[in-house]
Amino acid sequence: MNYARGIRDGFQYLLKTYPEVFAIGQGLWSPWYVGASMTDLDKEFGTDRVIDTPVSELATTGAAVGASLCGYRPIVIHPRMDFMILAADQIVNQAAKWSHMMGGRASPAVTVRAIINRGGEQGAQHSQALHSWYAHIPGLRVVTPATASDARDLLIASVLCDAPVLYIDNRWLYECESPDSPVVELKLEEEGPRVLRDGSDVTLVGSGYATWLCLQAAEVLAADGIDAEVVDLRVLNPFEPGAVIRSVRHTGRLVAVDDGWQTCGMAGEIIAAVAEAVEPACLKSRPARITLPDAPAPTSKTLEAAYYPTVEDVVNAALAQLGRAPAPKLAKAS
């Protein structure tokens, strides 16, 4: 099962099992907008439940919020996260706030699916990964699956959760494979960071595509006799750093990896959580972070190649933690 298939299986399970679930967003009758992640769902479940919309991010998202207040479980799809900013009021001011403002009486159980769709020299407005931005908002759960099984099971958990959830997937992961597994209904409230690979020399922490970078880097490091532990955050808000802290206490070294920008980003949050909780004597070196440079995405081929963090960057950061020289040039990831 690959990641795109995991997403599609999640939709299929939800639409088949729960009549109050529907999907609404741009491009749902034209699957190239959403990769292979929703192929033919409109044919399988009908266009009343898989709804393609006008070019109206704000009204569509608001409509999903309204339907969720009235007992439905809508999933709004934003095929490109950059355009979702047009709907930010409904996500940040409405969905995330209604429970609190209405004393817990209103429950906008809406899932907003945002797709990070970057690369291919698409440039500054077609490349953004804004998970850190939204993770700043109390009341908005933010979920970033990194594996195919999580892509499916965290989608299901998001929709079954009574709070608004921003579910963020990344098209660079769509071909990634996980072993087949049965569908499970997880309680999102109980989900959080998970150790995907055990190790004792250095802790690599990521979420979404950054987790994939960490896993690849761990393979490279293993060939060099270095045991890297990989922690996948999975849920960015509410942020529960316990698994990260436990891991760093064990390894004494930390590389926080994020495919978003550095300033006020998740990588900084990870390091802050460790700095607050881990005794200084436990740390064998200063924590490091690998992120995007604080610049909008370029379109030029050479600039784009330099822009995105690579497996090599993560490997070298881990080697530096161990006082080792950078690795010889690795093949560029993806």
Binding site: A63, S68, L69, D89, Q94
Partner: peptide
Amino acid sequence: GSVPIVGATIPVAVGAALA
């Protein structure tokens, strides 16, 4: 529900109508 962001409940009502 009522909220003070101007116009914010207009699409929410549309969603309630969809429901």
